[in-house]
Every structure is written in structure tokens, then in C-alpha cells.
Amino acid sequence: MPFGYSLFLKSSGKSENTITGYIKTINSFLYYLDTLYGKQRELYEITPSDIKSFLKYKIDEGNNIKTTNKQLATLKGFFDYLWINDKVPIDPAVKIKRYTDSVDEKISNITYEMLLKTLREVNRNSNYSVLRKVIFLLATKGLRGTEFQFHKDSVIDHGDSVELKLKKHSIILDGEDAGLLLNHYYESQFNGSTFVFVTKKHDESIVPIELMSIYTHLNAITEDYGYPDKITLNTIRHAFAYYLYTKKRFSIEQVANLLGIENNSAAQLIRNSVERHMKKEVLEIQ
């Protein structure tokens, strides 16, 4: 980390693991701003609104309040250091308050049935790239951001179907879905990486796809198809879990296996999804 912050943290007695966590949050914040503005944001240009926007983005991605407050504390410490050392004229984080546990969570109006309908329309959209189509396809299968970072040898063509082998589970695609993944898989052979999905950085380097790249495509679909709320990976996973549990009558174990998570995590995901749906119904009645 530039600006001497890593050395400052080390001299303050922070452990290597703690420092690594701080730097990861700061780099994630700076990359978010670079992507948001389409260029590198200078430190003196960063505003309180930028920080609040980043934290809201992370909440939309599924961060709980505790994690969000940790990220805010990290950014507060970073900008306090910059201000004390005359790296910025004002501290943009100083007046931003911590989130309370009672903060109202935005309840999405997006259902999985809506997503399935849009998926069919997206697949027929001649203005969309194969990349955008396959990202949306895999998002509707409940993939988390890091799960998009799979290697080319994770894609196995069985002839009548395609298997995508992720770290904790596999996804089987057939028909049009299989063809879509294979189309992008063949295109990816020329991306200069061992990964199927990649992000091209400002310095022209190629890295495994980053979250903001995924959201470039999901945001376009949100806008083009007039969704009432932003389509996020977290929103899709909750809608998917609710659909599987209440409509398809999947057990908790089946949902866990399908998403590649532990049974207790699947139970929590389903519980949260059901609670969100119940809150939505209450709000509609009111």
C-alpha cells in the first residue's frame, strides 16, 4: 500500500493478517472508485458520498452490518492517517456514522420467476454479447462473485451436456444453456489467461474477473429490462433459494448441495429469504 500506510500499521503493532485485511478493504474501495468514475480517483477528490456509495454497494452484495462497520472503521483509520500526514486537505470519512443493527434492509421486489423470464429474453437479445448472456445465466444459478473465477479446465463437455466444476459443487447445463457457456469458453481460449472470465485492468494486465466487471453486465440488464430494483448476485441467490424451497419444494440439504454450501448456511439463506418475502407482503398490505 502506498502512502506509507502499511509501515504505519506495522509500527502500530498490527498483525500481518490484520494489515492484509485492511489493505484488501482499501484496495477494494479504490478499485470501486476507479471503476465508478472510469479513471483513477485522486485522494483529494474522494468525498463522503464516495465512501457511503461503496458501503451501500457492499451491503447490496450481502455484507452484514458487522462487516460493513469493520470496513468503515478501516477506511476511517486510513483517511485519518492521510489527513494527519497532510496527504488530503480534509478527512472525508470523519463524519460518517456507523450503521446500527436496526438499520432497515432494502427488500427487493425481484422474484426468481422474473429472472427466468428475463433470462429467456436476454438469450434472444442480439445486441448483447455472449459474455453478458453467460454471466447472467450463471448468476441465475446462484453463483457468488468468487465462483466466476474458475479455470478453463473446470469446463467439461459431455457432448449432450456441459459440466462446470466449481470448488464445492458442480453445475450441469444442457441445451441452449450448454451452448452459451461453450461459446464463451471457446472465445476465452484467446484471453491470455487460464481463467474463463477475466477483467482487463487499466495497466492492460489480465486478472480473474472482478466483481465490478460482473456488475457492469447486471446493471445493464437491470436498466434495459426495467427492473424495479438493481439486480445483484445477492438478490438473485435469495430469490433462487426462496424459489427452490417454496416453489420446487427442495429440502435444505438439496438447496445446500445445489449452491455448494453447508446445510447451516443454506438454512440461514432460506430463513432470510422467507423473512424478506414476508416483510414484503406486510409492506404491500400497508
Rank of each mutant, 00 (worst) to 15 (best):
F3T: 13
L7V: 08
F8L: 11
L9D: 04
S11Y: 05
K14V: 04
S15K: 08
E16A: 10
E16N: 09
E16F: 04
N17S: 07
N17Q: 08
T18N: 11
I19T: 13
I19K: 12
T20M: 07
I23T: 14
S28F: 06
S28V: 00
L30I: 11
K39R: 15
L43N: 01
Y44I: 13
I46H: 09
I46P: 09
T47W: 04
T47H: 07
S49G: 08
S49D: 06
S49T: 12
D50L: 09
I51W: 06
K52M: 13
K52E: 15
S53D: 12
L55A: 06
I59L: 11
I59R: 08
D60Y: 15
D60S: 15
N63G: 05
N63M: 12
N64M: 02
I65H: 05
I65F: 12
I65S: 08
K70R: 13
K70T: 15
L75C: 00
F78H: 04
I84Y: 12
I84E: 10
N85P: 04
P92D: 03
V94I: 10
K95F: 14
K95M: 09
K95T: 12
K97R: 10
D101R: 11
D101I: 07
S102F: 08
V103E: 10
D104Q: 12
S108R: 15
Y112S: 03
E113L: 14
M114S: 14
L115T: 00
L116E: 13
L119M: 02
R120K: 11
R120A: 04
R120Q: 06
E121F: 00
V122K: 00
R124D: 11
N125L: 03
N127P: 00
Y128A: 12
L131G: 00
R132A: 14
V134D: 02
F136C: 05
L138G: 09
T140F: 07
K141S: 10
L143H: 09
R144L: 02
G145P: 01
G145C: 03
T146H: 05
T146E: 03
E147V: 06
Q149A: 09
D153W: 11
D153P: 06
I156C: 01
I156M: 03
H158R: 11
H158I: 00
H158Y: 09
G159L: 00
S161Y: 14
V162T: 12
E163K: 15
S170Y: 01
S170A: 15
D174C: 02
D174K: 06
E176M: 08
D177I: 08
D177M: 03
A178I: 10
L182R: 11
L182V: 11
H184K: 01
Y185G: 10
Y185V: 10
Y185Q: 07
Y186T: 09
S188A: 15
Q189F: 14
S193W: 05
V198S: 03
K200Y: 15
D203T: 04
D203H: 07
V207I: 05
P208R: 05
I209P: 02
E210G: 10
L211M: 06
M212A: 05
I214K: 02
Y215W: 05
L218T: 09
E223M: 08
E223W: 10
K230R: 15
T232P: 06
I236P: 08
R237E: 08
F240L: 15
Y245V: 00
K248W: 02
R249M: 09
F250S: 00
I252C: 04
I252D: 03
E262Y: 13
A267V: 00
A267R: 14
Q268H: 14
I270C: 01
H277T: 01
K279I: 09
E281V: 14
I285A: 15
